[in-house]
């Protein structure tokens, strides 16, 4: 049954996870800077033969329905946009983590990736539709990575789903984070933060991973970004794309209105756009889909 994870064990788990490839790591660093140049993104991809091949394969896949084959990496990147490139790079090296069956949450293989992709699209939409003054591309990347900690602690949570749900039902104000902490000693945001440190992710991405359920605890300079992902995460769950037992069992941080201006009509538009965009992207990145809602 479920047992507590010690700090030492957590470090061991983090070490057992494959490191990001140098190009994925550099892409994350580069694209999180506000004033980066697309030329630098192109050069990075060009220097990684595997990544170049993958990007060309994806841009020419049926999902994008191009009439003429794209053979130049510059054109492929400007066509797909850098968020997709980052998605491909991260998916390539951390694909196993994203694709993992989260048995500790009774969530099937591929669910986490679909949830992450929906969160990424939703976070980007939240930024563009609300007019928030942050990079929508960065919100997308942060959305992809926000739940990475779930893959780390899922195995330890096996068999705990009924207990977790009972705890939340029995105690007012108790959410799935509290349940995770009580059951194994760490919640998925803290576990993910340890991995973010090991991967040397840029600060803003690490902050998103650590605070995406309570953005009011994030550093002021990154707080809008963390709120965008927080709302994106909730939108993904509301749309039926959670990761099993924890879906919708978190609190919405009420202070979001100080950072993100969003009304009910805008929210409806965002939810619709997420569905449309997800259909376009789901086959081209990784994983495949069962319909939810």
């Amino acid at each position: 049954m479920v047992k507590q994870i010690s700090q030492e064990e957590l470090q061991k788990i983090v070490k057992s996870v494959p490191m990001l490839s140098p190009s994925a790591s550099k892409l994350l660093q580069l694209t999180s800077q506000a004033d980066h140049d697309l030329v630098d993104v192109v050069n990075l991809v060009r220097n990684d033969a595997n990544l170049t091949a993958r990007v060309l394969k994806i841009v020419n896949s049926a999902a994008f329905g191009l009439i003429n084959t794209i053979t130049s990496i510059d054109r492929a990147i400007s066509y797909l946009g850098e968020r997709i490139i980052v998605g491909i790079a991260v998916g390539d090296c951390a694909g196993k983590l994203f694709e993992k069956e989260l048995s500790g949450y009774e969530s099937a293989r591929g669910d986490l990736w679909k949830h992450d992709l929906r969160t990424a699209i939703a976070a980007r939409e939240v930024v563009t539709q609300s007019g928030a003054d942050i990079s929508s591309e960065l919100a997308f990347t942060a959305g992809l990575l926000h739940d990475i900690g779930k893959s780390l602690i899922s195995d330890y949570l096996q068999g705990s789903v009924t207990d977790a749900v009972e705890m939340i039902t029995a105690e007012e104000g108790f959410d799935y984070l509290d349940a995770e902490e009580k059951l194994v000693g760490f919640d998925h945001t803290r576990a993910g933060y340890e991995l973010a440190k090991a991967w040397q992710l840029p600060n803003e991405l690490a902050e998103v991973i650590l605070h995406h359920h309570e953005p009011s605890n994030a550093s002021e300079e990154y707080r809008t970004l963390v709120y965008a992902v927080h709302l994106g995460d909730n939108i993904a769950m509301m749309g039926g794309f959670g990761t099993g037992s924890d879906s919708m069992r978190y609190k919405l941080d009420q202070q979001y209105t100080d950072y993100i201006r969003i009304g009910s009509k805008t929210l409806a538009t965002i939810m619709l756009n997420v569905d449309i965009e997800f259909e376009k992207l789901k086959g081209s990145l990784t994983g495949s889909g069962e319909e939810n809602g």
Binding site: N234, M237, M238, M248, Y250, K251, L252, Q254, T257, I262, G263, S264, L267, A268, M271
Partner: peptide, 15 residues
């Protein structure tokens, strides 16, 4: 289903 949002915006389930 709904997430908890006191200002109602996120109550799409209810709407």
């Amino acid at each position: 289903a709904n997430v908890m949002d006191t200002n109602d915006t996120f109550q799409i389930g209810k709407r």
